Computed example of a mutant assay.
Amino acid sequence: MIEMQDVWKTYADGTHAIRGMNLKVDRNEFLYVVGPSGAGKSTFMKMIYREEKPTKGQIFVNGFNLGKLKQRKIPFVRRNIGVIFQDFRLLPKLTVFENIAFAMEVIESPKKLIKKRTMEVLELVKLSSKAESLPTQLSGGEQQRVAIARAIVNNPAVIIADEPTGNLDPETSWGIMKLLEEINYRGTTIIMATHNKEIVNTIRKRVLAIEKGQIARDEAKGEYGYED
Results as ranks from 00 to 15, higher is better:
Y185C: 04
I191H: 14
T165V: 11
R217S: 07
N196H: 14
I210W: 00
I190P: 03
K178R: 15
N167I: 00
A161M: 11
M192A: 08
L208S: 10
E182M: 11
E198G: 06
V200P: 10
G187T: 06
M177L: 10
R186H: 12
E211Y: 01
W174P: 06
K212N: 15
E171A: 11
D218I: 03
L168Q: 12
V200M: 09
Q214N: 00
E171V: 09
R206Q: 07
I199T: 11
I183H: 07
V200S: 11
Y185A: 12
H195I: 05
I190A: 00
L208I: 15
I215T: 07
K197Q: 11
A216W: 02
T194W: 04
I190G: 06
S173Y: 03
E198K: 14
W174M: 07
N201C: 03
G175E: 03
E171L: 07
E171Y: 06
T202V: 11
E163N: 12
L168A: 08
L168H: 12
D169E: 09
K212E: 15
I191S: 14
I183R: 10
G166Y: 05
R204G: 04
T194G: 03
E163C: 04
M177F: 11
K205H: 08
T189Q: 03
H195N: 06
I191W: 11
T188E: 02
I183P: 08
K212S: 13
T188V: 12
T188A: 09
E182S: 13
G175H: 01
R204F: 00
V200W: 13
N201T: 03
E198Y: 06
A193M: 02
M192N: 14
L179C: 01
A161Y: 12
R204N: 11
A216Y: 07
H195E: 05
E181Y: 06
D169R: 09
R204T: 08
S173L: 01
H195G: 05
G213T: 00
P164I: 09
N201S: 04
N167K: 03
I215W: 13
R217A: 02
K212F: 01
A209S: 15
R186E: 12
E163K: 12
K197A: 07
E198D: 07
N201I: 04
V207C: 00
D169Y: 06
P170Y: 10
I203A: 15
L208E: 08
I203N: 08
P164Q: 12
L208P: 15
Y185E: 09
E198S: 08
M192E: 06
Q214G: 03
E171H: 14
M177G: 06
P170T: 15
G175N: 05
T188R: 07
E211G: 00
R217W: 00
N201A: 02
I203E: 05
A216K: 07
K205E: 01
R217Q: 05
N201E: 04
L208W: 04
T202A: 11
L179S: 02
W174N: 07
R217H: 04
G175R: 02
I210G: 02
T188H: 05
T188I: 13
A161V: 09
G187Q: 01
A193P: 00
N201W: 03
A193C: 05
L180N: 13
P170M: 10
E182Y: 10
V200R: 11
E181I: 00
G175A: 01
I191M: 15
R206D: 05
I203C: 10
G166F: 04
D218Y: 00
P164A: 12
T172L: 09
P170Q: 13
A193L: 02
I215C: 10
T188S: 13
K205I: 00
N201R: 04
